[in-house]
Simulated assay, not measured.
Amino acid sequence: MNAFKKLVFAGLVAAVGFSTGAHASLIGDTITATGTSLDKASAVISTGSIPEFTAVNGLLNFNFDLSTLTITAPGVPNSNYTFANLGKYVFSGFDDVITGLSLGSNSPKFEGSVVDNFSFTAHSITIDFSAAKAQNSNASLVLNIATAGAPAQGSDVPEPGSVAIIGLGLLGLAASRRKFAKRDAT
């Protein structure tokens, strides 16, 4: 195999490597939680619809995923149910540095403090339920979590495949220059 073919082969291997780069996520993190009537104090974040934490005898579920926290109220007894003075729920111990927390969706609706009174530090998330209300028993609030290793869902970030395309373009330029150099040498 001549040097040019080796160069092309190495470029293709590198392009495939770049296009399948690793993505950081919350999956696998062991986090702790504090707050009113939580079912447990710690959990390992996993994929799926089973919440990591439930509170107030199943009236609230906290389900973490790749880069989101979904809060649901599957068991509220009636519409406009008020979670009177539940206070703050704090989730801490995330492996990656949290760089952002934003409202993703709220449908059917939660109202009150939980919608606009949440915060984060480098390794924790705090959600205030002191004046929260659920509109019905299917209320669902999604918070997008950005970490230093991965952006929150919905963020505009170039695909890793873009690096592969640029690399292949550069290899094509190198090949054409080599071809013209050989032609000019003869």
Rank of each mutant, 00 (worst) to 15 (best):
S49E: 11
L86D: 15
L141M: 06
L168W: 02
L101I: 11
A122P: 10
I127K: 08
F62H: 05
L170Y: 10
D96C: 00
F64R: 01
F64C: 03
L143I: 01
D29N: 15
S105H: 11
A15H: 00
P160R: 04
T72D: 10
I31G: 02
A122D: 14
Q135A: 15
G17Y: 07
G35M: 12
A185R: 14
G149D: 10
A73L: 03
G167S: 13
T32M: 03
P158Y: 10
G58K: 13
G93A: 09
S25R: 00
A150V: 06
V142C: 03
V115Y: 11
S42G: 03
V56C: 01
A185G: 10
A132W: 11
A73I: 05
A185C: 01
S37K: 13
T70E: 11
G48H: 00
L170H: 05
D39H: 07
S155L: 06
T20Y: 00
K6A: 15
G87I: 06
L170P: 02
F53M: 06
S113W: 04
P108F: 00
A131Y: 03
T186K: 14
T68H: 06
H123F: 04
V8R: 11
S46P: 00
L86V: 00
A24T: 05
L173E: 08
P74D: 09
T68G: 00
I71L: 15
V76C: 08
R178D: 10
A41F: 05
K88R: 13
A152L: 07
E52D: 06
I165D: 06
R177Y: 13
E111S: 14
E159A: 15
A55Q: 01
T32S: 15
P74S: 13
L66V: 13
L86F: 12
F118S: 05
V142H: 07
G161E: 13
V76A: 01
M1A: 14
S137Q: 14
G100T: 01
S46D: 08
I27A: 01
F110Y: 11
S46I: 11
G154S: 11
D39A: 12
S49G: 11
T36V: 09
G104K: 01
A175V: 07
V56A: 12
P158W: 07
I31R: 06
T36H: 10
P158E: 14
L66F: 15
K179L: 13
I98R: 12
N117R: 15
A139L: 10
G149L: 03
Q135P: 01
K40C: 00
N61R: 05
F53S: 09
N63I: 05
V142P: 12
L170G: 10
A43S: 08
D39F: 03
A132N: 03
L173W: 03
T68K: 14
A134V: 09
V8F: 07
A43H: 05
G35N: 07
S176R: 14
G169Q: 06
R177W: 04
I50P: 04
S19V: 05
T70M: 10
L170S: 02
V76P: 02
G172P: 02
K109A: 12
L12R: 03
F94D: 04
N80D: 13
V115P: 02
A3G: 07
Q153M: 04
P77F: 09
G87R: 05
R183V: 13
